[in-house]
Design a protein around this nucleic acid. Structure first.
Lengths: 201, 201
DNA sequence: CCATTCATGTAATCGGTTACATGATTCT
DNA sequence: AGAATCATGTAACCGATTACATGAATGG
């Protein structure tokens, strides 16, 4: 039996599997053609409270998307800045991203170090456990405040547009609401655990 | 050139860094000496709503802990079952685990595919997005119900002991409360997004 | 003088998943 | 006859993080 060397396959198959990062990049490129650098800024703390990535992951992923024919780039020479590549999404990239958007993802399994520690709480000194929890609760409170501020900013700038699912700002609005709900609930739980500890053994 | 075989280093340094899984295993071994197999059952879905691992990760990790002197094992020969190794935590293992327990972990960065999809919602067909969300919400509702049932079981079996931080059941109680709060909040958010979609564009 | 921004990449390593591998016993 | 339980391991792979590498311009 003989195998034939296949040419690079321009993949228009909607059912192929990309990493989530790949789809995230496609999604950001629907909005705007941009460089890998700009994409890495978009996916950097704290703008992305739902997905993040380093440039060292983004550049190779863009190469992969390009080889699959899901994005294209234009090389721009610059004199005072390093040259750059502006990436565009292709029609098949758009189709692939939309197909992904319409599939319900698996419910992610939680892996949370603090919950693990609380599970093992009885093996720690109560005082040390309490101050550990206080520190952690503080971090959550700060994140919560950060999200609340961001939402207030967005509401002020964009007004009622943030409520329309077709608007450019709905996505950020929804993500911020998720972040606020998550942090608030987490904080309440931390306070519940601390109250149990203070009520005593 | 000749290499000299170094003796195995028994590490008593409290400040060394293990993976979270390593500490999880140590914590479970404080409770009870047990085999790698039993540990993998403990860290298997759905008993662990906060940390999980496969046996292929657990066996090598136990070797590492043993080489560091944090656990020991006893080889048990069996006739009707495969031979097994029963692991025990050592005094330095206990110290290392307690030191870890008392440190506040970094607040984990959320990486949630559904939130990413909702962020990009305007690029999907509204009908498809709605049914995707309905499916996802259903999965969260089921997990929520599962946790609620588990908590009811625990409460019934162990009574008021689950409220004492020093009790064996407090950890599971707290973890279940966290799971319930998390799923409930998530579900409410899904419903909010769906309501926005239904209210229209 | 030093840090930051723009801009792109590679290499090493780590944590985790999936699959491969073996093999007796017990339950359906 | 086939699946599940007990029991232990290895190997390949993938996604993500950290560090290495370069280099000009701008701002404090």
């Amino acid at each position: 039996m003989k195998t034939v060397a296949l040419p690079i396959r321009i993949c228009q198959d909607v059912h192929m599997k990309l990493s989530t990062l790949g789809y995230a990049l496609l999604g950001l490129l629907i909005d705007q053609p941009q460089t890998g650098y700009a994409l890495s800024q978009n996916l950097k703390n704290p703008v992305s409270f739902f997905w993040h990535a380093q440039h060292s992951q983004i550049y190779p992923e863009l190469c992969k998307l390009e080889q699959l024919g899901l994005v294209q780039f234009e090389h721009i020479e610059q004199s005072e800045r390093p040259d750059k590549k502006i990436y565009n999404i292709t029609p098949s990239g758009l189709i692939a991203c939309q197909a992904w958007l319409e599939q319900s993802p698996d419910v992610p399994k939680i892996r949370d170090e603090l919950v693990l520690k609380v599970f093992l709480l009885r093996f720690a000194k109560p005082q040390a456990a309490l101050s550990m929890l206080q520190q952690h609760a503080l971090a959550h409170r700060q994140r919560l405040e950060f999200f609340v501020e961001k939402l207030a900013d967005l509401e002020q700038k964009e007004g009622s547009a943030i409520w329309k699912p077709s608007s450019k700002w709905f996505g950020a609005h929804a993500a911020l609401r998720r972040g606020i709900g998550y942090q608030r609930e987490y904080l309440e739980w931390c306070e519940w655990v601390m109250a149990c500890l203070e009520r005593g053994f």
